[in-house]
Design a protein around this nucleic acid. Structure first.
Lengths: 326, 326
DNA sequence: AGTCGCCACGTTAGCGCGAACGTAATACAG
DNA sequence: CTGTATTACGTTCGCGCTAACGTGGCGACT
């Protein structure tokens, strides 16, 4: 920076100012400084700037998995809103609370200016670190009542409940439920609870044989369907609540020639283009994942710029998309 | 850090040393320092550390889109190899060279210790900045002969050529080709070139009516198929080389009752579980995207640790997965 | 004319850490 | 016992920048 300042005939301080606000100097000075920056190929050292100002423009984001396209939607939403003023540091927790804690510690070491978590369940140490860090923290995903700071998401419980009620409304009485493993996964656990709530409200007794947990994946969804039909032949509908499980189940039903929804109705979650294009198109829940990313980033920026203070809980809801698979 | 040092009865320097190498002090000193860190909740300031040491442990990664699950594979590969010693800063270029340049400039300002690009075509300024930055730079994706520094990927040209030759070998002579828009996308352009190479080698004249560009998406793939069949009814096979285009085309063929491969054969690229689960399962190209991420990160770490020097070009190849859609 | 305020810019003093170097204490050979 | 090596730790200084405050020059008031 000293080089640039010397070449432009000003002090380093003026160069520093120009980099943050080009309009705070006379046009002539600005021109000389910009010319000097161009000539030297100077790239400001944000490390030094961050140390001196005790601020960074880095937002930390922790997702359970970088591979899952569901989370990619949220990441994209965050990235689109952050813009060029802020940078994004991403880590994955590997779906574990310990992994999340490690990532949080690393991020705090980098003195990130805010953090977005794709999880609302945390280790005690994680909670303490975040509370004491004094930075905005947004938890996204499953809505909770007591966020560390702010949260944006939807109710997995209510969504699963609504879908189950939809199936009940269509006259199905032996409704299977398949979810991802509920351990350490508050979202999956909430959905199972929602399913059970709907059955209870309708006075339909829950049949444990109709409830399965299944790893993620298309094949896994197909296997779950087959297992349900074989062990509980009375099953007349199934709600597969995780990722692509429902699509896998539908494709498997097609292969085996099982009529959908004649033999068995299939409902899914996390609507995407694929679920609309298969035959028959799938009834699914649609979650505003991209919007969650955008709003989370927006809440973070509002807090950083002082436009908002205090905690916030934002429910973006969900939609049920009724198609011909149910 | 001064607090911790005072509490442990040592100098700040000793604390600093312990944080980098716990074994460089006596066990008793280590114990006292660790106890003090625990008691104070001290989180080392990596910003200050980076400024003093003029190094960071942040790796920059630029992908065309954060939303696309193809890139998610590579991101995951990078993330898995980097481990907890290095951190990942991610930006998307929005598929534009200008976007990439902006991200590169921002990353260099953060003094990243290395960079991985998911693109092998860059703006002139980008190339200059990267060459002068003096950090390891890995270009992934389409293999090129003159990398800025190092590259790992596969030949899109050869892959598309192989797939086209596969179709020719099955006796198809009116082979359509659909790709993503080739502008600013070296990968799509290379694939189109590979398709044309295979036709030329086989002495089959290329028919411009059989070559389409199409935006990404399942529906878009279906539309491309329909357009091809309607405008050039003699078409007997089609190779859709982008993302989920082929799956969309197959689902559309199913809906319209067109026999695959009887009426028209369909081949795709970027194999995934979905393409195996549809009926009929799709013949596709399989690219080692996860492995590319792993190897790219590995090459970066090797360079940083001094285990390797100089440029490198790593071809991870591709596979053709022959299934019943062709 | 005085002075008040404002603008454009300079000066000073760190931010929290690590590289380089220094020092004291112990080990061991000759 | 001296000399040298080695280990364990301390001191000094500066990384490149910015917050806070200082200064001089100019126009607009009373």
């Amino acid at each position: 920076m000293a080089d640039v300042a010397a070449m432009a005939g000003v002090s380093a301080m003026t160069v520093s100012r120009v980099l943050r606000d080009p309009n705070c100097v006379t046009p002539e000075t600005l021109r000389r400084i910009e010319a000097a920056i161009d000539a030297t190929g100077y790239v400001p050292n944000r490390i030094a700037g961050s140390l001196a100002s005790r601020r960074t423009d880095i937002v930390g984001l922790i997702v359970p998995s970088l591979r899952n396209s569901l989370f990619a939607e949220t990441i994209k939403g965050v990235s689109d809103i952050l813009g060029s003023e802020h940078h994004l540091m991403i880590a994955d927790s590997g779906y574990t609370l310990k992994g999340e804690e490690v990532a949080i510690r690393a991020f705090l070491g980098q003195r990130i200016c805010g953090i977005i978590l794709h999880n609302t369940k945390h280790s005690p140490r994680s909670r303490v670190m975040l509370q004491e860090a004094g930075i905005p923290c947004i938890e996204t995903g499953n809505l909770i009542r007591q966020p560390i700071d702010m949260t944006v998401g939807f109710s997995n419980h209510d969504a699963a409940c609504t879908m189950t009620e939809h199936l009940l409304g269509r006259g199905y009485r032996h409704i299977g439920f398949v979810s991802l493993p509920t351990k350490d996964n508050d979202r999956a656990a909430e959905r199972k609870a929602g399913y059970l709530t709907a059955l209870a409200r309708a006075g339909v007794s829950a049949n444990p044989a109709l409830v399965l947990e299944s790893p993620p994946g298309l094949k896994s969804g197909g296997q779950a369907l087959v297992r349900l039909v074989e062990t509980a032949p009375e099953v007349d509908a199934v709600f597969l609540s995780g990722d692509v499980l429902a699509t896998g189940a539908l494709l498997e039903a097609n292969r085996r020639g099982w009529d959908v929804p004649g033999r068995i109705a299939i409902a899914g979650s996390d609507d995407n283009e694929l679920q609309e294009c298969v035959s028959p198109p799938l009834t699914t829940l649609r979650f505003p994942r991209y919007e969650i990313g955008r709003r989370a980033a927006g809440m973070l920026l509002d807090r950083l710029s002082g436009r908002s203070t205090g905690p916030a809980i934002l429910d973006l809801g969900y939609e049920i998309i009724e198609r011909s698979s149910t």
